[in-house]
């Protein structure tokens, strides 16, 4: 790693620091500016919801923060490392060590059971060379799906699949949990359950979470809400009720 990056590590202590990110796609012959100069910081233990309508650039921003996309310009510091300026392999390494993802479509591997999905994530993230059923089973138990651990995704309801996906994303205790419309495919009850789960992870275990949603109700479960429109940040709102909930816990 270069000297300048070492300096950045010292300067950027927050888990996520985004500085003037621009992201432009080429669609056919047209350039689409999905993100237009976004800057934000997510502090350790924060639960941030990025909210906005479809096409506002929130998913692109999440993918950039998650290292799945390289921005056209700007800098993103994940635990002090600027992932916009490192190689694909280094970004993959950061993703493996620092991040967990929860997707709208759950994205479980359909041929594996719930337990094996989680074990595979653990293996990829480097902690699963020796299978540790105890921990995985414990996590599944905490999420209320211990009895489903040997079921394949096709045998689980949407809510159960999303709970397995959450278990998979936190099994290696990532620094940042990135959730992309985690309730987008769920009914009201399951949505509330998943949001409660994310809130519990944040409040009880201090898990830093960045969640994308277009649903104001879902966004209201976060400690801070960032509203996006047309690739730009429109509003930043601190959720006072959340602070009260934290205090209560």
């Amino acid at each position: 790693m270069s000297k300048s990056k070492t300096v950045d590590i010292v300067q950027k202590k927050d888990p996520v620091v985004v500085e003037d990110i621009q992201m432009t796609y080429r669609v056919g012959k047209v350039d689409v500016r999905a993100v237009r100069g976004v800057s934000l910081t997510v502090k350790a233990g924060e639960f941030v919801a990025i909210m906005g309508p479809s096409g506002c650039g929130k998913s692109t921003l999440l993918h950039v923060i998650g290292g799945l996309l390289r921005p056209t310009s700007g800098r993103i510091f994940i635990d002090g490392v600027d992932i916009a300026s490192i190689s694909d392999a280094e970004r993959t390494e950061i993703r493996r060590r620092k991040m967990g993802f929860v997707f709208q479509r759950f994205n479980l591997l359909p041929t594996l059971t719930a337990l094996d999905n989680i074990e595979l994530a653990r293996q990829i993230q480097g902690n699963g060379h020796v299978r540790n059923h105890q921990t995985t089973e414990e996590i599944l138990g905490l999420l209320g799906i211990a009895d489903k651990m040997h079921h394949k995704p096709s045998e689980l309801s949407g809510g159960e699949q999303q709970r397995v996906a959450i278990a998979r994303s936190v099994v290696s205790r990532p620094a940042i949990l990135l959730a992309d419309e985690p309730t987008g495919n769920l009914d009201t009850d399951n949505s509330q359950m998943v949001l409660q789960m994310l809130q519990d992870l944040n409040v009880k275990y201090g898990q830093t979470i960045v969640m994308i949603t277009h649903d104001p109700e879902a966004a209201s479960t976060a400690s801070r809400i960032i509203e996006m429109r047309d690739g730009r940040i429109l509003n930043r709102v601190q959720n006072l009720f959340y602070a009260m909930e934290q205090k209560r816990v």
Partner: peptide, 14 residues
């Protein structure tokens, strides 16, 4: 393809 994307999102290297 999607499964490969999932693996990549989990941090699977090339």
């Amino acid at each position: 393809t999607r499964e490969i994307g999932i693996l990549k999102s989990l941090g699977a290297s090339r």
